[in-house]
Design a protein around this nucleic acid. Structure first.
Length: 256
DNA sequence: ATGGTTGTGTTACAA
């Protein structure tokens, strides 16, 4: 099965791009981020008409995540556990065809330093706690999304320029590697062990044309899931089209 | 060039 993740930067603004991509690429599961709309405003019918089950966890104007699936969706959980006060719609889990999947929109954390970065760190600590819990289960596990973390210098086109950016701070990178050290596999690096493999390019200053990007969208797999990993790719074609998202999809194929 | 662009939803904030 093919599982993809894509930060669409507004599902309403991006609907033609998303439906084109679903029709052409035919993922079994699509983990979406940054819907920027309430659940009742999600274009559910347009997606369902393409053969997908739709689960959303949205909010007005900001954030919002979705899981689209050709297969039945079971045991949906909305919101990241660990803080009942947190109102931001950034996390949802579901079980699809024996695989527990999570769609993750990890806080950006800029400007650094400040309260937004502190929120990012607290959110990552909650994600680590939830991951430990999930790893005690027997299901396959794919944690996909916009992590807003560049794991290494090579994941950023100009590390010096990002020295004070929240995407590249040691406190958040350390927590990303805490996830890896729990036993998760960074699926892209199985096939592309090093080098520039970006998933996001700023709209400004011709960043796409100059390939001034960052790798911040990741698919993390539990050990038994990594054993089933056949392929992982970043699909740059949606980023090159008219009215694109600033992110492009990353996907993997599992022999499940 | 402490610049530049897009989206939401009103003209500021987030990314």
């Amino acid at each position: 099965m093919k599982i993809a993740s894509w930060n669409v930067n507004s599902i309403k603004a991006r609907l033609p791009r998303v439906t084109d991509w679903l029709n052409e690429f035919q993922p079994d599961v699509a983990l979406l981020q940054e819907l920027k709309c309430l659940d009742e405003n999600f274009p559910r019918m347009e997606i369902e008409d393409l053969g997908y089950n739709v689960e959303t966890h949205g909010q007005k104007s900001y954030n919002g995540v979705a899981i689209l699936s050709k297969h039945p969706v079971e045991d949906v959980m909305r919101g990241l556990p660990g803080d009942d006060e947190d109102e931001q719609a950034r996390y949802m889990e579901a079980t699809i065809n024996t695989v527990r999947v999570a769609t993750i929109y990890l806080p950006n954390g800029n400007p650094f330093p400040g309260p937004k970065f502190d929120y990012k760190i607290g959110w990552m600590d909650r994600l680590i706690a939830r991951t430990k819990e999930l790893l005690t289960h027997e299901e396959y596990l794919v944690l996909g999304g916009d992590y807003n973390v560049c794991p290494k210098d090579e994941d950023c086109y100009d590390p010096a320029r990002f020295a004070n950016d929240a995407l590249c701070q040691p406190e958040s990178i350390d927590r990303f590697y805490t996830m890896i050290n729990l036993g998760l596999t960074d699926a892209l690096r199985v096939f592309y062990p090093s080098g520039h493999n970006y998933t996001y390019w700023d709209y400004q200053a011709g960043a796409w044309q100059k390939d001034n990007g960052v790798r911040i969208d990741h698919l993390l797999l539990s050990p038994t899931t990594a054993d089933k990993l056949v392929k992982c790719e970043i699909d740059r074609t949606p980023r090159a089209k008219e009215k694109p998202s600033d992110h492009t999809p990353i996907w993997c194929e599992l022999a499940i």
